[in-house]
Design a binder for these strands. Structure first.
Lengths: 210, 210
DNA sequence: TGATATTTGTTGCTTTTGCAACAGAAAAAG
DNA sequence: CTTTTTCTGTTGCAAAAGCAACAAATATCA
């Protein structure tokens, strides 16, 4: 989306005096927010990287979403149920903008530039989000670990316009992202290597098939 | 979302003379659209039910999304890759509105009511979509068939405000939706029944746990 | 209504995945 | 620079899931 460039520039040095819009910084491994019903919070990640994670009753961790620069997230996009605790964890040092959803289309008292540009760009930000979510679902609906890996690798390859690309995850996190057991995934990665489908150096992957 | 009521009323008897907005009818099992890169088509399902499906190289079918009344979909929300064919299939007779994404925020020549209301409500329509997608991901990230079933049943129970609810799918389609083998799912359903977690009559399910 | 197609329910067997555990490599912290 | 922590790579075994096949029940269609 070329429109993300507009947003990027404006977010970099936004200023708004509304008490409803806040910019906060987080250090790696801190919890940025926990999803709570009815608060309707929306966040934009200005810099850094973060994951939306769920710990289920067995203590298994799932990475529900992976956020990087300019991604939008927050409980406003979620129907929060009682069965699971969702929280957003900083994977690197992060800067995050917080506001509430109701606020987006309301003109703020100051009629500040932030609100103007935000409401103009909100749909595009969400559209990007929808595309990411659809991509994620595409991968998760694949039946086997092998297909998930190949599906994800294809996407990364397409995005980087190259057969070679760098995984945006540690292998441990990749397993959580694909929602599979890490050791099983490692086994499958090894088979893919042995059978000549991929080449792997650390987290640099090269696809060897068409 | 209470805002969906506005949309519902206006969609029911919309009229727009733009050549870029079309309303079409489909019979059960017809293909409503196939996703093609760059066309940027957006669709709103006015009535009926439809599924976004993918057939992979092995011929396995996955239901990527399930659409009901007032759901929004289309290739504009997708990064279409070469590896898979995505199409939307009518599960019942359907009425569908077609237009292109660029069109949403452009004022049409006629400045018609449709475009006015659509741009005002587009964000809410997408927001609902994001919530659905997030819900779907929640379920797909569960590790076992049992957890997927229970996760999905919890959601249906919450939505219907009751321990008893009707599955919106045939069991065959439910398996495709959860992206698992049907016979394995049936086995798991049987265990859930035998162990006293659920009661099942056709596609009416009752949860027996807390 | 009768014929045809689809869905449900079930099972034996095979393959895949998850689990647990551990050693070595790499990265982070002090 | 050394220690501590996290990540990678691997394995044997157990559990879960997929596959194939079929009969019975339902639904659809002509």
């Amino acid at each position: 989306m070329n429109s993300s460039l507009d947003i990027e520039n404006f977010l970099k040095d936004f200023s708004c005096n509304c008490k409803n819009v806040q910019k906060k910084s987080f250090r790696k491994n801190q919890t940025i927010t926990t999803y709570i019903q009815k608060r309707n919070q929306v966040c934009i990640l200005l810099s850094g990287a973060a994951d939306l994670v769920r710990y289920d009753l067995n203590g298994d961790k799932s990475i529900i979403e992976h956020f990087s620069k300019n991604d939008i997230f927050g409980e406003a996009f979620y129907i929060v149920t009682t069965n699971n605790e969702l929280s957003v964890e900083a994977k690197k040092n992060c800067e995050v903008l917080f506001f509430i959803y109701d606020n987006i289309y309301q003109k703020c008292r100051n009629n500040c530039k932030f609100h103007q540009i935000l409401s103009a760009n909100f749909s595009n930000l969400i559209l990007n989000k929808v595309m990411d979510l659809n991509t994620r679902i595409e991968i998760l609906t694949k039946r086997t670990i092998r297909e998930k890996l190949r599906g994800y690798f294809n996407i990364l390859s397409t995005r980087s316009l190259s057969k070679t690309f760098i995984l945006p995850f540690s292998l441990t996190d990749l397993a959580d992202f694909l929602s599979v057991d890490r050791s099983a995934m490692m086994r499958e990665l090894k088979s893919l290597k042995d059978e000549g489908f991929i080449k792997k150096n650390g987290n640099r992957i090269t696809l060897l098939y068409k």
